[in-house]
């Protein structure tokens, strides 16, 4: 967790902890903010295809994303900090994805849900983007066609671990590298 809790066992040193006793937590700012962020993802479900059905199950009663603090989907990118790219991104769709990514406020993370978003999957043809990482930076890849909810939860936990370790200097990331300048 990265939070040190002083319970007053150390008696040989006279310090702030000694004086204040059990009434305070001492930690680094980076860590406490990371800890807070990782349990309050507001996700933007960019649902395009089959994986969306699995996403419904994930939000449903059995798998219940609420347990991991990311239950509340926001349908405005400006209110969200986790972009869930759920499904195939076609070339017609690609500019919209980049636009949505750019509209999100920092810090923001990208979750590639399913093999189509990750690498294009078995749609290696004229219509499909071969992985969203050609367009925007991605934090977690979850393969599977579609991935089982357990896999997605695993991916989400790994993203939480990653977020907990982030530092102030990691942000801002800026807009997507492929963004066209007007």
């Amino acid at each position: 967790m990265g939070i040190t809790e002083d319970r007053g066992q150390r008696t040989e040193e006279e310090g702030l902890e000694q004086v204040l006793g059990n009434s305070v937590l001492l930690t680094k700012l980076d860590e406490i903010i990371g800890w807070g962020r990782k349990y309050s993802f507001f996700l933007y479900p960019f649902i395009t295809a089959c994986c969306g059905m699995e996403f419904m199950s994930l939000a449903g009663p059995r798998y219940d994303l609420d347990r991991f603090g990311s239950a509340l989907p926001r349908f405005s990118p400006r209110q969200a900090d986790l972009l869930m790219v759920v499904g195939t991104i076609s070339h017609k769709q690609a500019p919209i994805l980049v636009k949505v990514y750019n509209q999100m406020t920092e810090p923001k993370w990208v979750f590639s849900f399913g093999v189509c978003a990750t690498s294009g999957g078995f749609y290696d043809n004229y219509a499909t983007v071969q992985g969203i990482d050609t367009l925007i930076p991605v934090d977690v890849y979850v393969p599977g066609c579609p991935p089982r909810p357990e896999m997605v939860i695993d991916g989400l936990l790994r993203l939480q671990q990653k977020v907990a370790k982030e530092r102030w200097s990691d942000w801002p990331r800026g807009e997507a590298p492929v963004t066209k300048k007007i």
Binding site: H91, Y126, V129, V178
Partner: peptide, 27 residues
């Protein structure tokens, strides 16, 4: 498809991987 797309993809002489991205690299 989109207006910028050139050609007609289901013609037999159109390559399977003839990608014409609107944004991003052509891979």
């Amino acid at each position: 498809l989109y207006e910028e797309f050139e050609g007609h993809p289901l013609r037999k002489d159109y390559p399977v991987r003839g990608r014409q991205p609107l944004i991003g690299p052509k891979n």
